[in-house]
Simulated scan of single mutants.
Amino acid sequence: MVALVVGVDWRCQMHRRKALEIFSSFLALCSSPSLLSANTLKQGVKVGYLSISDHLLIIAKEFSKSVNIVPLKFSSWSEISEALRAGAIDGAFLLAPLGLMLRANGVDIKAVLSSHKNGSALVARSQIGGVNELNDKIIAVPSKFSIHFYLVDKIINENKIKAKIVELPPPEMPSALLSGAIDAFCVAEPFGQIAVNTKRAKNLLFSKDVLPNHICCLLNFNSQILNEPFYDDLLNAFKNAANFLTTNPSEAVNLASKIIGQKSSVLSDVVSKNIVSYSDLSLKLQDLENLREFLISKNLGSQKLKNLNISEYLAL
């Protein structure tokens, strides 16, 4: 009887050891890059975007061969930034200054592409005859951490005028302009052309004429994504989307309007006027360094931003 009990205990110990070995092997497998890749492929790569023409590249979901790109729409820059910081999404289109600030504050992201070049306009009330008439007027931008603030500051300085710059949510800009609450605004499309299409506002300047081929939003990914075996296909999907927007604008806009949630007629207006460009999505270190210096000069940058190695942020 005793021998039987000992025998059973011995076998149980062997089973427990075997179970532990199997469990340990399972944990190791789960943490291996191959399984992480498989899980990511199964669940999809979650990419955040806003309902603006700057983010038309989100149609890349239709051009990926091996990975499911899952578009997730956000309503504000703060929400999309926090989601990327918290790891709730794998990538996001972000205003370039916001990407710089996140990276400077320790968020492990890399900028892989410009989501477009140019893409905005300084829109004013129809009564405004030219830039000089904006002296002592109110100009709205979406955020002080935006290329639009950089552009408006450049316009003001080059034309030697004074103006009050205020921050305003983009969807509110057309109505604020038409009601007389502001005199002009600079923001991502299609809000500028929404105001212009009322015939009570006009394009005073296109951003491409203020700073040719300028960046605005950058496509950022969690750094780990760049080490995944499917990354090349993921990146190519966005590049192919850019090519499709350039060579087949009508089809691309119809596809994008369903994802972005803006009327295809308004998006077509943006593309047909060549307000935005997708032919060159390259990133240049100097562009980001210029932005950093601008933020610091406006007391918007921290010591962490001053110390940021921007070359490590860019996936060049």
Rank of each mutant, 00 (worst) to 15 (best):
M101W: 14
G91H: 12
S115K: 02
M101F: 14
H116A: 04
A104P: 06
V112A: 06
L84E: 11
L95Q: 14
K73F: 12
A86N: 14
R103F: 11
V67D: 01
N118L: 00
S120L: 06
A86V: 06
H55G: 00
I109A: 03
N68K: 15
S51T: 02
R85E: 15
G106M: 10
V112M: 03
N118A: 07
I80M: 04
V112Y: 07
I52R: 00
L95Y: 15
N105L: 05
V107F: 12
S76F: 03
I109Q: 13
A60P: 05
G91R: 09
K73I: 13
A88I: 09
L100W: 15
E62R: 03
S115W: 04
K65N: 14
G91Q: 11
A111G: 06
I58E: 12
S114P: 00
L84F: 12
S53I: 00
S66K: 11
W77N: 15
L95F: 13
H55R: 01
F74T: 02
S81V: 01
F93K: 00
E82Q: 15
I89H: 13
I69F: 11
H116L: 09
K73E: 14
H55C: 01
M101Q: 14
A111L: 12
A86T: 00
V112D: 00
F63R: 10
S120K: 05
W77Q: 14
I59F: 11
M101N: 12
L72P: 04
R85S: 15
A96V: 10
S75H: 15
N68F: 14
F63M: 09
S78Q: 12
A88G: 05
F74Y: 15
E79K: 14
S78I: 14
N105W: 10
L84H: 10
E62Q: 06
H116Y: 08
K73D: 03
A104E: 11
R103P: 03
E79F: 11
A83C: 05
A92W: 13
S78C: 05
S78P: 04
G91V: 07
H55D: 04
E82G: 05
S114W: 01
A104D: 06
G87V: 10
L72K: 13
A96E: 12
F93A: 03
S78D: 14
L94C: 07
L102P: 03
G87P: 10
P71N: 10
I80T: 02
D90P: 06
K61C: 10
K65R: 10
G119R: 00
S114D: 03
S115G: 08
S51D: 12
P71D: 09
V107R: 06
S115L: 01
I58N: 09
S66N: 13
K61P: 08
I52Q: 00
N118P: 03
F93V: 03
G91D: 12
H55T: 04
N105S: 07
A104M: 05
I58G: 06
L98E: 15
L84N: 09
D90N: 14
